[in-house]
Amino acid sequence: MIEEPFRFVEAIANRREYIENQIATGSPIVALNYAGGILVFTLGRERQKVFEIYDRIAMGAIGHPGDIERLRMTAIELASTEGFTRSASDVSLRRMANYSISPALKAAFEQIYGAPYLARVLFVELGPDGSQNTFLRVDYDGSIQSNGTPFSKSRQEYAVLGGTRASAEQMEKFLARDYKNGLDLDAALRLALDTWTAGFLVFEGDKNPEELPDEGTLNRTRREQLEAATVEAAVLESKVATPATFRGLTDGELRPLLEGNA
């Protein structure tokens, strides 16, 4: 089967369709820069989806929990052993994704008799001086999209992870319109929630929307979803005394967001 080019292409296409279907209903994840660092945000129902990887790296993922877990452990092991044998400043998200995570995902995806990873991952990394943060998305087939190379002049200040391409595009459009530099945490949380809602609306209602949702639809959906699910948010803080910068947000910090939508 592998020797025949057409069959291989067909098998890959089938596999792609299967995986896309499997992860389509995943709750979107929104990550954006704010005044204090990076915010990673999602709404969830049953399990944790935003994780600490290393001192300055966090991860959000949608897909099968078993596959997410394998990728998460791999990332933590890579970062921890590198940080131990060399130093914490040698741990780099770009290297980890390019040389380890992506090849592993691609190999699993193309070995059509084996099981692929049913997962899509968003990594974020706090830059050395709190600027030049990296947002990097690795898909189930190993493809990487990031917000810029080390040489690029302007970097995008946010990234999203959606269950479908349309959902992700809608969220990016939303952020392109509403994102501003230097948001405080409360403003960043509100923007993240609105962006999440815009992404959620895509697989809830219109699968290929032309327009961004209007204010009324956004408000109503947001309220419904906050009742049904819980907010999960974590930050990488650029101004902390300890090397580890990851912190899950507390109920107290999320309360203004929830009460504003009660």
């Binding site: 791999t74 890579l78 380890s100 090849p103 592993a104």
Partner: peptide, 12 residues
């Protein structure tokens, strides 16, 4: 650069 490639069941 010496990361071992991530393998399924990395913790095996």
């Amino acid at each position: 650069m010496n990361f071992p490639p991530a393998a399924p069941g990395a913790s095996a």
